[in-house]
Every structure is written in structure tokens, then in C-alpha cells.
Amino acid sequence: MIEATDQNFETEVLKSNIPVLVDFWAAWCGPCRMIEPVVEEFARDFEGRIKAVKLDVDANQSAAGRFAIRSIPSLLFFKEGRLANQIVGACTKSQLVSMAEEILAG
């Protein structure tokens, strides 16, 4: 999965041609580790339709601050440069998929 950073957030996320899922995570966060396989599977299933990236909140505090991230994992969907929807906390793949389908349809 692509690593989003403070530096490339604009190009990788906000200016992406397709919707983007950003997984805000950190090494110290147990639930972040637990949803990693879920997000990776999601990334494979939606390849070409939704881009999935991960953003380490420790190393990229400006992006995390910009979206007022106060809890991780936080999974934010962006479409055409705008925040489209988000899930806070550990989630199942079916929750992610139904949100993704909604965003693709809308």
C-alpha cells in the first residue's frame, strides 16, 4: 500500500483521479494493527476503483491535524479532493465495502 505523507498528501489524496481511502495509523496502536489485513484486502478488491493509502500520524502530524484526527484507527474516504465519509475505530471489511460502494455510486 502507498504511504501518504504530509508532503504528498495533496497529490496522492486530494488530487487523485479516483476516490482514496486513507488509513490513519501509528505503530503503538493495537487496533490499527488488527485492521491492517482488512484494509489490505480492501485495497486489493477495489484496485483501480478506490486507492487505499496509509498515513503514519506520528510522522505526519500536519495531515492528521488538518482532519482533526484524535482517535486511531481512523479511516477517511476522499472523493474529488473532499472528505466524503469516515469510520473511527476498528471496523469490519463489510462496513468498509458498503461505505465504498456508496461513495462510488454517489
Partner: peptide, 17 residues
């Protein structure tokens, strides 16, 4: 305010405070 200050996991979210 879930995810905006309300948390159920200190190890996940403590560093934001």
C-alpha cells in the same frame, strides 16, 4: 465527538492529547 475527543482506547489515542 467520537474520534474527536471521546475515546475508548488510551493506548491508541493518548498521544493526541
Amino acid at each position: 465527538f467520537r474520534g474527536k475527543g471521546v475515546s475508548y482506547c488510551a493506548t491508541c489515542d493518548g498521544a493526541f492529547f
